[in-house]
């Protein structure tokens, strides 16, 4: 019992030490855009994305509140939440993964480092293993991570009624831009 107590204590110390490598943001930006034939633009911005990056291990997580995506048109926003991503049932989209080549990023030297991220993307109740490329940009000690990729709606069981098929594309372009701060 005593051993266990010490063990827990030490584990606690160990995590405390690791915290220095934690970079965090609560105001990351994720946007998406539907490349459809129709001139009506379907695009939205979310400026309240939270994410944590462990600069030592490369572990990376995102939590995205779907209701925080804002559209130009109120009705699009309502339909996005009600009919497509069903944000009452699935309020969050999450990503849990890793920057696999984290060792190639020199956090103490300015520059843009190409990275590959692998992990599990959860959206609309569906989890999928994904791998995307992006870059980690270091500028005077600040960490900025960006990525641009495309997802298929049917991979996440988001169906588009035939009536609006020409307005919403099956492929959605996603851009991610997060400026991290060291977690105190």
């Amino acid at each position: 019992m005593k051993k266990l107590f010490f063990g827990v204590l030490l584990a606690g110390l160990a995590t405390g030490a690791a915290a220095q490598n934690i970079q965090m943001t609560k105001s990351g930006k994720v946007s998406f855009y539907s490349r459809a034939k129709s001139p009506e633009k379907v695009e939205a911005d979310n400026n309240e994305v939270s994410s944590v990056l462990n600069t030592q291990t490369g572990d990376l997580v995102f939590a995205i509140l779907l209701k925080s995506f804002h559209f130009e048109r109120a009705l699009m926003e309502e339909h996005f939440n009600e009919n497509y991503v069903e944000s009452n049932k699935y309020p969050k989209s999450t990503f849990k993964g890793k920057i696999v080549n984290i060792s190639s990023v020199n956090f103490s030297k300015d520059g843009a480092y190409p990275v590959t991220v692998e992990g599990e993307l959860n959206l609309h109740g569906v989890s999928r293993q994904v791998s995307y490329t992006g870059s980690v940009i270091i500028k005077s000690g600040k960490v900025n991570a960006t990525s641009r990729f495309s997802i298929k709606l049917k991979d996440y069981n988001v169906s588009i009624p035939s009536l609006v098929a020409d307005k919403i594309s099956e492929d959605i372009d996603v851009t991610v831009d997060c400026k991290y701060e060291p977690k105190s």
Binding site: A11, A14, K26, Q56, T57, V61, A63, G97
Partner: peptide, 26 residues
């Protein structure tokens, strides 16, 4: 034990812990 835990801790923490950290913040 100490060394073992130090070695294991990054694995244990990994992504689920980071996610928990986010949840606590929110």
């Amino acid at each position: 034990l100490f060394l073992l835990l130090n070695l294991l801790s990054p694995l244990l923490r990994a992504q689920d812990d980071l996610m928990k950290m986010l949840e606590n913040e929110s």
